[in-house]
Design a protein around this nucleic acid. Sequence first.
DNA 1: CGAAATCATACGCTTATGCATATGATCTAC
DNA 2: GTAGATCATATGCATAAGCGTATGATTTCG
Lengths: 129, 129
Amino acid sequence: MLHPLLRALIAAELPVLEEHDVSMWGYAVLTGLDDTPVRTQAALAEAIGADKSRIIGTLDELQDAGLIERTPDPSDRRVRLLSITPKGRRVRRAVRKDIRGHEDRVLAPLPAADRQAFLRVLRHFYDTR
Amino acid sequence: MLHPLLRALIAAELPVLEEHDVSMWGYAVLTGLDDTPVRTQAALAEAIGADKSRIIGTLDELQDAGLIERTPDPSDRRVRLLSITPKGRRVRRAVRKDIRGHEDRVLAPLPAADRQAFLRVLRHFYDTR
DNA sequence: CGAAATCATACGCTTATGCATATGATCTAC
DNA sequence: GTAGATCATATGCATAAGCGTATGATTTCG
């Protein structure tokens, strides 16, 4: 059950991400920063389940693309705080909109009550994660 | 939005699979064969989204463990038909039961109607894949 | 009949990822 | 003041997986 679901979701998501020139981890970063705007790299990596070393390359790309910024933390010179740029926020929300659009099309044949319930359960997962 | 859900489900599934000494691909194979009992290796690999070469090792392991069998196809000497053994079926169903059990515990705080709807929607995703 | 296709199998190459280690700079606590 | 911890960064190692190629045996089709 799970495995085909995973494959279907990835298959749905990848073309959207490609269209916006964002990687999967890139999108996860943007999402994390959009939801909680300023974070240390370590905290963000933990929050999105990424390896703190491996995520560096992704951060570099996002920074080069002007989607995020790294700012030295005045209270701790080891730390660079991450934040999303307005451009990054726009990209993230556009991607989310497109992905939601696809999900909505998949869900469309189902009764509205089921759709609402599904979203409620997802929110539950998200909140308890 | 779906991403945390998937991480949670994967996190739930892996320990169960380890407990039963089955890999993820192994479980996918058992599931595929349980659902459609006799298949060529190529057909099964395609059905579960596996690479037909890479799946050979998994099939070897499952065969060694007595969970599946490979039988020459009398009508085509190139082909070996796969089938699940009664032991394989028992393992698959035990794993499924445990995974479901865990999912049920995660979903327990939610109203029953939401749970049912959630499962219905997941099934819909699965069917429209 | 013979060329092309197909089966299972093996393996090369590349990429991604998890985990570990290491570095230099900085911070914290004793 | 100093040892230990932590930050971001880089990289090694092992594993898994996708895709491609190749092989020998067999089948299909013109």
